[in-house]
């Protein structure tokens, strides 16, 4: 064990402890002083998660959230000095965290909030102009084989729960009243997209979400539409395209070699 390894392990230990080799000018117990570092590390990381996941925190309360975050941090400490995206795997952790099982949609709310942070910091990209898009859509022989590059901020979340409605209720002044209107077990899909400097989260039909998610994964137009119809018999291709065009979400197109 190296000195810094001892030090690092004591910082993240479950119980308050301190590494060997510390000294104090007045002979006082170094544990009390070491606790300042422990506190800085743990509190700053919990705070970072609380900043990223405000609605997740509201759903379970600050006390529960912070206790859960502490356990998460011990299992998944940051692997990068870039803390903006720290906690990408919190949703997966929540799914395996028994005390959170009573809030079945908690993990998907966390996924939505991480998509929001990723959209906020995603690269800037200019949309394809409207003329080019209409030309493309009019080109019936080639359209099925066209692949789209979507805006880097775009994210899709398909959930078995009413994630968008639940999230939106937490943006209102009277959260309790807003929540009373929601059936949490209704499947919903979210489109996360930065418009200018603001990230917008909107509820979109499940089929549109499937279509856009498949385009984003690189599927060509026809194949993505086919997948979307399979996912949602009511899939409306025109409405899905409209979401992308109005959201300035198409940044380039190319012709795939495979259909």
């Amino acid at each position: 064990m190296t000195d810094q390894q001892d030090f690092a392990e004591a910082l993240l230990a479950a119980e308050s402890t301190f590494p060997p080799g510390l000294s104090t000018w007045n002979g006082s117990d170094p544990g009390r002083r070491f606790a300042v570092y422990r506190n800085n590390v743990i509190v700053s990381l919990i705070d970072a998660l609380a900043d990223t996941y405000p609605v997740t925190q509201e759903l379970v309360g600050a006390e529960f959230f912070r206790a859960m975050a502490f356990q998460f941090i011990q299992k998944n400490p940051p692997r990068s000095p870039l803390l903006a995206f720290y906690g990408e795997d919190l949703a997966a952790f929540i799914e395996t965290f028994p005390p959170a099982a009573s809030v079945p949609y908690l993990a998907d709310i966390a996924r939505l909030e991480m998509l929001q942070v990723q959209a906020y910091h995603a690269a800037d990209a200019a949309p394809l102009d409207a003329g080019e898009i209409s030309q493309l859509l009019a080109n019936e022989p080639e359209l099925p084989r066209v692949s789209f590059t979507l805006h880097p901020s775009l994210g899709i979340l398909r959930s078995r729960h009413a994630v968008v409605s639940l999230w939106a209720a937490h943006q209102t002044d009277d959260v309790t009243a807003a929540l009373a209107e929601i059936a949490p077990n209704t499947a919903e899909a979210a489109l996360v997209l930065r418009a200018g400097l603001d990230v917008e989260i909107s509820r979109i039909p499940v089929g549109s979400a499937a279509f856009i998610a498949h385009l984003q994964q690189g599927l060509a137009f026809a194949a993505a539409a086919q997948q979307a119809s399979a996912a949602d018999p009511e899939f409306n291709l025109a409405a899905a395209l409209c979401l992308l065009i109005q959201g300035d979400a198409i940044t380039s197109v190319s012709l795939s070699t495979t259909p």
């Binding site: 810094q4 940051p78 803390l83």
Partner: peptide, 17 residues
């Protein structure tokens, strides 16, 4: 100061002997 060890980033400015 140091702020991480191995793969782990600790998000604090830690002391050096």
């Amino acid at each position: 100061a140091w702020a991480g060890h191995g793969e782990v980033f600790l998000n604090d400015l830690l002391p050096v002997p």
